[in-house]
Amino acid sequence: MTKKNVDDYLQEGMYGTRLPKEAERKHFLGTLRERVILALTIGEVMSDRGLEKLETEMKKHPNSTLLMNGSVAYKFLKQERDLADKYKISHTTISNQEHQTEIGAVLTYDHAIDKEDIYLSNDEDQEKSDSVEKDDQKDQGIVERIKSWFS
């Protein structure tokens, strides 16, 4: 452990004790990445795209907590709050005027769970790529049939 100097004491007095992974905490509304079950961006919260996924995760994790970004208008967070109330999940609005984040809502635990896919867009991108592959296979089948007519 290093010895503290006068500058360290002054910094701690003015800004408080430094937290580990402070940038990560600011990004995920005060929690760590390893604790996150589902993270929704502000756009996903405002368009209600993640409500269905949020509800299924709330059913699976009844002891979780919902953190909501205070910079998002109340009317956009109403359905998320209603879901949290429905499943008796505590919810908190986090307002940090000094730091902006694109995260609109986070379903989290107070301990590490290390879930790999926490973003909604990852799941939707996978579903879209699967449907595109199926469409390509259909198109290929039609082209092959037309070729067979002329050969």
Score class of each variant (00 low, 15 high):
L67R: 00
I89Q: 02
A105T: 01
P20C: 03
A73D: 15
E44W: 03
P20G: 07
E57K: 11
R81F: 00
F76A: 10
S64R: 07
K147Y: 07
I89N: 03
R35I: 05
L66C: 04
L120R: 08
S95A: 04
E12I: 13
S151P: 01
L67I: 01
E12W: 07
G104C: 02
K88E: 09
K53G: 02
E80D: 08
S90T: 11
K134M: 01
I118C: 04
D110S: 10
Y9F: 15
G16S: 08
E52I: 10
D82C: 08
T65F: 12
Q11G: 12
E22T: 15
A39I: 04
I42F: 01
L107I: 07
R145F: 04
K147M: 08
D125N: 11
G43W: 03
K53Q: 13
V45G: 00
V132G: 07
L67T: 02
S95D: 08
T93L: 02
M14Q: 07
K60R: 14
E55G: 08
Q126M: 10
T92K: 12
D136E: 11
D135K: 15
I89P: 06
T31I: 05
T17Q: 11
I142D: 01
A73L: 12
K86T: 09
A84P: 10
V143W: 05
S64Q: 06
M58W: 09
S47Y: 07
G50K: 04
H91F: 08
R145P: 00
D125V: 09
K21T: 10
K21A: 08
S47W: 08
Y119K: 12
A112M: 10
A73C: 10
N96D: 10
D135L: 14
V6T: 12
S64P: 09
H91R: 06
K21M: 12
A23R: 08
R25N: 06
K26H: 11
G43H: 09
Q137D: 11
E44G: 03
D114K: 06
N96I: 00
Q140S: 09
E22I: 11
G43T: 11
